[in-house]
Design a binder for these strands. Structure first.
Length: 882
RNA sequence: GCGGGCGUGAUGGAAUGGUAGACAUACCAGACUUAAAAUCUGUUGGGGCGUAGCCCCGUGUGGGUUCGAGUCCCACCGCCCGCACCA
């Protein structure tokens, strides 16, 4: 039976006198030593290059998980490596502490969100400290600290002053039972995720950051983020959604059929299109049910009102949208085609037109748009192509019942009805440019660039968030709170026994004096989206106790974050919002212009996964078993209790519901933090998922024990002992220094660890003398120090190294020592390996060629003939073409 | 549908266009042991032959570029991720 390996507390074999590897002693001792020396407390020092490493700060759920261990270990390797290479490192940690789980906990189990949160923080800090991270805990803060959110309120007021925030009506998902606004992700199948109530679309007055004003800038600046994953840049680019098109107006000529009066102020309908080259194929004009014109018509017509209401009910999930039927309502209104005054088009209200994109109105060209074609066929509207394939063989035109013809814009097609000019072949791109020019020349509209990105709504009808520091006064309206009154602090005496926002029903909290006229007024009870909290914490870390949001000298010195590390799930919102905030903070004087892109380099790590063990359950649903309850035999698994065979489902994200969670605390208490750190780095490249396996963790522990044992073996050697192969060992050491350094620089931590395994094996087998072996083990400890800092310190001190290894300079690879005297060159014949020769490393190309040609496999292949060609790549390979 | 990425042993994964499978797991065998654990050593891509050795095939499939392709190009197949009624 397999047994988990535990640190042996005693060793009875009698053969070894060395103390065994006991991480619990070692790790506590060195964490204490680092603490006492205060080496991780960052101080401004203009004489050294600074380096700011940041991992995305955690939500204080109360328990760390393996994903945290991986995230912080990655950052710690970078931080410790940079420290060893002469950098002044800032490596802070804090808590993303506002948010719904705290309120949910208060509702579910009682208690107060604040107590729940601070208790969790205390617990999680206690769980993180044993990991031995090089964190400057003196800078720690939580976003729910009044000292933090008060400064956030100050930022908000400055943004408001600078015109970066505004208030407007917006459609929101309203949960009528919980009486709160829900984010889109919290609406599942049209129902509130908590209450299960049918979600309503309500119009509320909300606060918005004007991020859409910066859409173009945020998109263009992506090009400069060379050290971000291309994938993240692309996701942001798509999210911002830049498009180039034509905006123009149709003039209204008709009256509703029922003779109702023409709606006031609607003599024209503005539309936006990215395909102005299809204008000659226009068939109808469509407006959104939320378009001002539709809303005006709705007031005079019960029919329109009913139609619009029907449209608004529709769900927003992907499946619903895909299957939803295209619905239209003929308003009876008619518009004139801008290029042909005799051409009239009907105006429909249509359910598939979104109010918040473009102008909320379109012209339909059924020949070149699938939605428009479906709509036109349903309502019997004309279909007219403006272009067709250059080769029409086998092509059925949409007019003749074929599908809508929608080629890529870079495809050359034959334009039957171009907007200006004679029929001819051109690409869609060229035709669009020409169409915009034609329209602009004829005064029919302008080319415009639009963005999909919408303003960022920050109002939340919740308690546990940063209060929005404004006051509503009967005479003055919406008035910003005075800065000297900040922070607007959350009241503690609230209850969660009834739904809705506790701030709303608090007996006195709302009451205040108007900052402008002094009359009795009421505070805003909405709080800020928690994404606001995380949009500037990185800047706050540079001066976490300041009584202004930032301090110019500190921000100038520490910003930007040189390396940011976190999950790809934040690729869009958190990172985009932070980029917006950095710009807004620059405009309001809180960050230097050099920090408008706050993250120089971004690394997105993969998840920690684990196999799922399941057996069939009674009701057909699988029963999940904890890893501890399962025994592995080869590639099969059995229940320890009863021995039934267990199905092993391929690895998936650790999840409580699947019982495949491995608790870092258990691993640390069994094997130590160094083992956990080593393992999460070793098995997969950091950007990919890593599968946690018990055998892999054991192997990591065994390896660290081995290194420990080697160190003791070396100290037991006769100090004057000479040996064999000193040079070979040192050569391998210098190669290892080089390879590990290159690997760490490029985030190839798994590759670095592979090299360390290989060098450990070399050292273990080495017969070199004491001096060489001592040099080798101390260098090995240094190279391992970023990953397993406690073990590295223990070995360093055990070998008599000066000071802390954490403060020692990173070892330098000696190029001269990396060159072997001889090299073994593979010999290829016609590109296939057929043999090898060993030659002095400095042998000339010509001599290598001669030797190669004389070699047995080449002679055999030539069979007396002459080679056609011989390629010699010095130090690499010889290829003979016969 | 649109955009992007990835396909390498039983498994996780290595390979600046230059010896494919480093390193680790798993498996198997051996040493030590009364035995086990621990520790150490070794084997393991597939196939074949005249088996101390040698040969052939092999990085999803098919083609191409090159002296040489896992790597570059084209097409296809499969999987994964992001976005999606965005005019």
């Amino acid at each position: 039976m397999r047994r988990a390996i535990r640190p042996a507390f005693s060793c009875h074999t009698g053969q070894q006198h060395m103390p065994s590897y006991t991480p619990s002693d070692i790790e506590a001792r060195w964490q204490d030593a680092w603490d006492k020396a205060g080496i991780f407390q960052a101080k401004r020092d203009e004489s050294r290059p600074k380096y700011y490493v940041l991992e995305m700060f955690p939500y204080p759920s109360g328990r760390i998980h393996m994903g945290h261990v991986r995230n912080y270990t990655l950052g710690d390797v970078v931080a410790r490596y940079k420290m060893a290479t002469g950098h002044n490192v800032l490596h802070p940690m804090g808590w993303d502490a506002f948010g719904m789980p705290a309120e949910n906990a208060a509702m579910a189990i009682g208690g107060h969100p604040r107590d729940w949160t601070y208790n969790n923080i205390k617990d999680m800090r206690g769980q993180m400290k044993p990991l031995g991270l090089s964190i400057d805990w003196s800078r720690e803060f939580a976003t729910c600290d009044p000292e933090y959110y008060g400064q956030q309120q100050a930022l908000f007021l400055d943004f408001l002053d600078a015109g970066l925030v505004h208030r407007k009506n917006a459609q929101v998902n309203w949960d009528p039972v919980d009486m709160t606004v829900l984010a889109n992700e919290q609406v599942i199948d049209g129902k509130g995720w908590r209450s299960g109530a049918e979600v309503e679309r309500r119009e509320l007055t909300q606060w918005f950051f004007k991020i859409s004003d910066m859409a173009g800038e945020l998109k263009d600046a992506l090009d400069g983020l060379d050290n971000w994953p291309a994938k993240v840049r692309l996701m942001q680019e798509n999210w911002i959604g830049e498009s180039r098109g034509l905006q123009f107006a149709f003039s209204l000529i008709g009256q509703p059929d029922d003779g109702a009066p023409a709606p006031d102020g609607f003599d024209r309908i503005e539309v936006y299109t990215t395909r102005p080259d299809t204008l000659a194929g226009a068939s109808f004009v469509g407006i959104s049910p939320d378009h001002p014109l539709a809303k005006t018509l709705e007031r005079n017509s019960a029919e329109v009102a009913a139609f619009n209401a029907e449209c608004r009910k529709g769900g927003t999930t992907a499946a619903e949208i895909e299957t939803a039927e295209k619905l239209g309502f003929d308003t009876g209104l008619r518009v004139r085609h801008p290029f042909d005054t005799s051409w009239e088009l009907p105006v429909y209200i249509a359910n598939f037109i979104l109010m918040d994109y473009g102008t909320g109105a379109i012209f339909g060209c059924p020949a070149h748009d699938e939605r428009d074609l479906e709509f036109a066929r349903k309502y019997d509207l004309p279909v007219t192509s403006t272009f067709a394939p250059t080769n029409t063989e086998g092509f059925t035109a949409p007019e003749d019942g074929g599908a809508a013809f929608v080629p890529g814009k870079d495809v050359t097609v034959h334009f039957v009805r171009p907007l200006g000019g004679d029929p001819r072949d051109m690409t869609g791109d060229a035709a669009i440019i020409e169409a915009i020019e034609t329209c602009e020349t004829n005064g029919v509209g302008q080319g415009v660039t639009k963005y999909r990105l919408r303003d960022w709504g920050l109002s939340r009808q919740r308690y546990w968030g940063c209060p929005i520091p404004v006051v509503h006064c009967d005479t003055c309206g919406v008035v910003p709170e005075k800065k000297e009154n900040l922070p607007v602090e959350l009241p503690y005496d609230v209850s969660f026994d009834t739904p809705g926002n506790p701030l709303d029903r608090h007996p006195t909290w709302r009451d205040c004096a108007c900052p402008k006229c002094g009359a009795p007024a009421q505070r805003e009870t909405d709080t800020m989206d928690t994404f606001v909290d995380s949009s500037w914490y990185f800047a706050r870390f540079t001066a976490p106790r300041a009584d202004t949001p930032t301090v110019a000298e500190d921000a100038a010195y520490w910003m930007n974050v040189d390396q940011y590390i976190g999950g790809v799930e934040h690729a869009i919102l958190h990172l985009l919002y932070s980029r917006f905030f950095a710009r807004a903070m620059q405009i309001t004087g809180h960050l230097p212009a050099s920090a408008i892109e706050p993250f120089d380099a971004l690394f997105t790590q993969g998840m920690v996964t684990h196999a799922i063990y399941q057996t069939p359950g009674d009701n057909g649903r699988p029963v999940y078993h904890y890893p501890e309850a399962v025994e592995l035999k080869g590639d099969k698994a059995f229940l320890k209790d009863g021995g039934a065979e267990v199905e092993i489902v391929p690895s998936a994200k650790m999840s409580k519901s699947k019982n495949n969670v491995v608790d870092p605390l258990n691993i640390i208490s069994s094997f130590g933090a160094d083992t956990a750190r080593w393992f999460v780095l070793s098995d997969s490249p950091p950007e990919r998922d890593v599968e946690w396996t018990a055998s892999g963790a054991e192997a990591a522990y065994k390896h660290l024990s081995r290194v420990w044992n080697i160190s003791h073996r070396i100290t037991d050697m006769d100090a004057d002992a000479a040996g064999e192969g000193d040079d070979d060992l040192l050569r391998a050491m210098h190669k290892c220094i080089h390879d590990v350094t290159v690997a760490i620089e490029s985030f190839g931590f798994n590759a670095a660890i592979a090299k360390l395994y290989a060098f450990t094996a070399t050292l273990q087998k080495s017969k070199a003398g004491h001096a060489a072996q001592r040099t080798a083990i101390m260098t090995l400890a240094q190279l391992m120090a970023p990953m397993t800092p406690h073990l590295a310190e223990a070995i360093w001190s055990h070998q008599g190294g000066a000071g802390l290894i954490t403060l020692a300079d990173w070892p330098q690879a000696d190029e001269a020592m990396m060159v072997d005297d001889t090299v073994t060159l593979p010999i290829q014949i016609n590109g296939k390996r057929r043999g090898e020769i060993t030659v002095p490393a400095d042998m000339s190309k010509e001599d290598v060629e001669k030797l190669a040609l004389a070699s047995q496999p080449v002679q055999k292949a030539l069979d007396g003939g002459q080679p056609k060609k011989v390629i010699v790549v010095p130090g690499r390979i010889v290829n003979v073409v016969v």
